[in-house]
Design a protein around this nucleic acid. Structure first.
Lengths: 339, 339
DNA sequence: CTGAAAGCGCTTACAG
DNA sequence: CTGAAAGCGCTTACAG
């Protein structure tokens, strides 16, 4: 009538030692096939399910990985990456009895505290790092804390942290070449905040592609990863003379913010100006004209990142330091047209 | 050189028993103020931080609450509620050393399995339920599992589950009255999927408000909580004769989908048709015209829900069964105008 | 107030 | 292969 059956109960019912029951249930060597099967049968019959707490304490693992989000309200509302990303994470960790712990930090400082607390209390065995910044302070902190971590980044490297890399450069380059092919020669870029590595990677890809084509890299307008940045860039663009005829934006929301504002100002897209985004969020298909963009694959990224983290938790020495996820592909829609 | 200091080390260094150290550090009665202070000093000096695992096992709690998301990719990309909601959750639980465990289910069945697993392994002490459905199977399951749960719902009740309620009816009613005041008499509603209680609550609020004003509740168009539903409703609306002159949508994304499609069809908003949304998501401010909506407060809801869950975990008998969060307020923008 | 002991439910050496 | 013991790091009765 206890309501809860422990491994002790299973062992007793199967008439084996607790250690044998444990080995049998965890598919560890050291028990005969017959014993294993009997124990498993008994366990199933009794409805045994191991309590994570016991397992955690004895195996000195938390069976959890952490993800810390900063400024969640804004970021999450605007980050289409997040939902698909954690779905991928879940796919990778669930089979290993791992769970995802989500922390929300209200500031950069509190963000670092979150990692410190997770490490100190060993609530998680490792963490995933998103939205990597230039000289990201988290890398040093995590090394100091000796907390396994995997960075998700489009950049080649991230301060010696193991990483999963989905480059955005090929997509940005493809978008830029697409515009060049359409006859554009004055192709601007709306970049993100300078602190993020994404910003630099995309900026460089845009620039390199233009240079390669023998074109002068047009103006760089300051935007961000949200709608507001696109709007601001639009204001800036409207004051430009000569105006660029095409704009490669750092992401979809920014592109949409730009497009909506330019349309409000009376411009016609793509007739007056062509626009490309990056991400492939749903609303890009709904705006008029629909947004030409690069479809990234956040679920794949999340899955690979979590899998890599588990590998590093398991054995840092034998785990790879870098996993590449194929870059997103260009999706051509109505927001881009002939010069 | 162990690198990790346990409560045993603290007790030894402070020359007290482990039990005294524990009581001192946890602010439990049974130690003198002098001892408490000494233990705390020693702990700080040694850099002691309790390991969650030990605490979990001995106190028979996981110090974690769970949240299961279904169909994450779509839902999360479209759900503006989520980011702000978990920020609120975090605000409530962090001070109590609780953490949020996020599960992602790929189907309705797997969703129930998630709860079963969390309960069986006692990975969490309780769960939060979002997006409550009519006759939601989760309510019965959680009762059966005896897993503390708090439902987040706009509805008056949820199958005997403790709940946090932010009614949407007042907001929908306000939006509807706003349209009536503008002279509209044929006011349609785009509703969500019938399975969600939100859908019914908002539908009823719209209907009751019209009836109260002596108006005939106009057509109800089938939509959903995403852009696609708004688009579909737009197609339906375009075939209507006479056409409604205003539409109350179940949420912002649906409203935006509707607006964009109607504009594509050549209609002018609000000249030809006025539109209202619900939620107050950022992009509603950026579309042209900006969307009249109801600003809900998901962070507050998350905070209250988590606080209520902790109260029920702590003592179900003394915890309230229902907490109300003030309803969202109408925000009038450009998408609504005079008939 | 204080301390020594037991116990939470598992897994991990270790001896047979 | 099998089992009895110890231990993971805490907290919770319980005795002084």
């Amino acid at each position: 009538m206890s309501g809860r059956v422990s491994i002790t109960d299973v062992a007793r019912a199967a008439k084996v030692a607790q250690s044998s029951a444990s080995a049998a249930l965890n598919d560890q060597p050291g028990v005969s096939e017959a014993t294993r099967q009997r124990v498993k049968d008994v366990a199933k019959q009794l409805g045994y399910a191991p309590l994570m707490r016991g397992k955690m304490l004895s195996s000195k693992r938390s069976f959890q990985i952490g993800l810390v989000l900063e400024r969640p309200t804004d970021v999450l509302e605007s980050d289409p990456f997040f939902g698909a990303f954690i779905a991928g994470v879940e796919q990778a960790i669930a089979p290993h009895d791992y769970a995802l712990v989500l922390q929300v930090a209200e500031s950069r400082e509190r963000e670092l505290d979150s990692y410190r607390e997770m490490a100190a209390s060993e609530r998680v065995d490792g963490v995933l790092l998103n939205e990597i910044r230039v000289d990201d302070p988290r890398a040093a902190l995590l090394a100091e804390l000796r907390l396994p971590a995997v960075a998700v980044s489009p950049w080649k490297e991230c301060a010696n942290l193991p990483m999963v890399c989905q480059a955005s450069a090929p997509g940005i380059a493809a978008a830029t070449r697409h515009l060049i092919k359409l006859g554009h020669t004055r192709i601007a870029h709306v970049c993100g905040p300078k602190e993020y590595v994404h910003t630099h990677e995309r900026l460089q890809a845009w620039e390199a592609t233009l240079v390669e084509a023998g074109l002068q890299p047009g103006p760089v307008l300051q935007g961000d990863f949200g709608l507001a940045g696109g709007t601001a860039a639009a204001e800036e663009l409207l004051g430009l003379n000569p105006s660029p005829t095409a704009v490669v934006c750092v992401n979809d929301l920014c592109a949409i913010g730009l497009q909506l504002r330019l349309q409000q100002a009376g411009l016609s897209i793509p007739k007056d100006i062509s626009i490309t985004g990056f991400d492939g969020i749903t609303i890009g298909e709904y705006v008029t004209p629909a947004l030409t963009t690069v479809q990234s694959t956040p679920t794949q990224v999340g899955k690979q990142a979590a899998a890599l983290l588990l590998a590093h938790i398991d054995d840092p020495k034998s785990a790879p330091m870098k996993v590449e996820v194929p870059a997103g592909e260009l999706v051509i829609r109505g927001s881009t047209g002939r010069r």
